[in-house]
């Protein structure tokens, strides 16, 4: 654009969208919904050796209102499921969910009367981690996958492919490319 020349070396110009995405993905605040064995591995991931802080996600928030990434780690029973739904509801948008371990993802070996067979029946899950329990490296990998997902989304939390595309212009209306004013006037519908 040429603006950089005017502003000097210390200022970078970019779109608001990319700044928001960059900030979001490098400062995820997880809400650890840890119930069972996986929660111990999650604690191991947070502590010294694996150190989740390297990925900008060390600010564990036990209040859902301050968090944007929910890590469901452990078995979810029928008594716990309403709690999980309530806490998920309380998290502000945009929010992402990691389902950590076999039990949260599918019920695992516990095909019993009391265990919810996968939280994805009731919640949108963005990333699943296999394992019983998964190793801390897997959790870190899932965190990076979530960062990739954030990267691909627009700042309003919609993935590129889900975004409603503006109607393609018909040839009779105008042969020119769409002008900026026209796009603003059209209801975005998103």
């Amino acid at each position: 654009m040429g603006l950089e020349k005017l502003l000097g070396d210390n200022i970078i110009t970019t779109s608001v969208d990319s700044v928001a995405k960059w900030a979001r993905k490098n400062a995820l605040w997880p809400m650890p919904f840890g119930t069972a064995c996986c929660a111990i591995e999650m604690m191991a991931t947070l502590s010294g050796r694996f150190d989740m802080a390297r990925f900008g996600a060390e600010v564990i928030r036990f209040s859902p209102r301050q968090a944007d990434l929910m890590i469901v780690s452990g078995r979810i029973s029928i008594k716990m499921m309403p709690v999980l739904l309530k806490i998920y509801e309380q998290m502000p948008e945009p929010k992402w969910v990691i389902s950590m371990g076999a039990c949260a993802s599918s019920g695992g070996v516990f095909d019993t009367y009391t265990l919810v067979q996968g939280v994805d029946q009731f919640l949108p899950v963005h990333c699943y981690i296999p394992g019983c329990p998964p190793r801390p490296e897997s959790l870190l990998d899932a965190l990076m996958k979530i960062q990739d997902i954030i990267d691909e989304e627009d700042s309003d939390g919609k993935a590129e492919e889900d975004r409603e595309k503006p109607e393609p212009e018909t040839e009779e209306e105008t042969g020119d490319s769409v002008s900026a004013e026209q796009e603003v006037v059209e209801p975005s519908g998103s």
Binding site: V83, T114, L115, L123
Partner: peptide, 29 residues
């Protein structure tokens, strides 16, 4: 062993919020 369907009766949340009533269970609070 697998119960009588208790584990499937919950409201479902998608991106837009709850879509089905399910058992209408209240939260644990």
């Amino acid at each position: 062993l697998r119960g009588r369907g208790e584990r499937d009766a919950f409201p479902q949340y998608l991106d837009s919020g709850p879509i089905s009533g399910g058992a209408g269970k209240e939260g644990g609070g």
